[in-house]
């Protein structure tokens, strides 16, 4: 009998730590995909990550690389500061939807428009998680949250902002894709996109942005399984998955 072979292990870019994320939340999967990518591309030791404000503010407890923690919404500004003074390092921001799509709208649009050579992992779970389930710019029409207890009224709160599609409108070259991680098939695609994003940065090609649809069972008031179903039934039809923009190809219509 041959010696046992390790076929699955914690990436070096993840620390050995207990998670603070809720059961059924997909932040952990997304962390892992980023960490696997840093390992596979050999980037961990020259990477600086920027944590947002929100559930993933503590992501520096998990990523085993240099990390900074930003003020709410300002991660792209910090990343710009780091990347401009250390252009040969790898810089990424990891941001949620309240952080990136609301208070940090100006920072993300202008970082993308300047073509800053860093990578953004945008986790869209259609709600503010850490503060306890308030309406986000990405909250779905009629979705109930603590600050839209009768459901999001698109007449007064507008429609969910499709950030990846909005950023893809900019003329500046970029890599922009929207993915999901609620099934193994989607997760495999998400891994490919995240890896592609870091690859473009490593080649100093362009700004890269991956929007990842994510679950929030706690604040959606659903079980993990119901959350996966809701994401598939409600979010995926609105937040269309796929490549939005590539430095290699014209945008997909």
């Amino acid at each position: 009998m041959s010696a046992p072979t390790t076929i699955f292990r914690r990436p070096e870019a993840l620390r050995d730590a207990f998670t603070h994320y809720c059961p059924g939340c997909t932040h952990g999967i997304i962390h892992r995909l980023v960490a696997e990518t840093l390992d596979e591309l050999g980037l961990r030791e020259r990477t600086i990550g920027i944590a947002p404000v929100g559930c993933s503010v503590l992501c520096y407890n998990y990523f085993n690389c240099d990390m900074q923690e930003a003020a709410h919404g300002r991660a792209p500004a910090l990343a710009t500061g780091v990347k401009r003074v250390l252009p040969d390092r790898i810089v990424f921001t990891y941001q949620g939807d309240g952080d990136l799509a609301s208070i940090g709208t100006a920072e993300i649009i202008h970082a993308a428009n300047r073509g800053e050579k860093f990578t953004t992992i945008f986790v869209n779970n259609a709600i503010y998680g850490m503060t306890g389930g308030q309406m986000a710019p990405t909250t779905m029409p009629n979705q109930v949250t603590t600050t839209c207890p009768r459901g999001r009224d698109v007449n007064t709160a507008g429609w969910p902002i499709p950030v990846a599609d909005v950023l893809a409108q900019l003329r500046t070259p970029a890599y922009i894709e929207r993915v999901a991680v609620h099934t193994p098939r989607y997760t495999v695609q998400a891994k490919r996109a995240i890896r592609q994003a870091f690859q473009y940065q490593a080649e100093n090609r362009c700004y890269s942005f991956v929007e990842v649809l994510s679950t929030c069972p706690t604040n959606w008031g659903k079980t993990p399984n119901e959350s996966v179903q809701w994401l598939e039934d409600v979010m995926v039809p609105y937040f269309k998955l796929g490549l939005k923009k590539s430095p290699d190809r014209p945008p997909v219509e």
Partner: peptide
Amino acid sequence: GVFVQAESELAASQMIFGAAAAGARV
């Protein structure tokens, strides 16, 4: 040196934060 015209004073000053943490005189 690095010169960046930011989108706002909010962003300019947070770029300072990032660059200072990366060890630059800013």
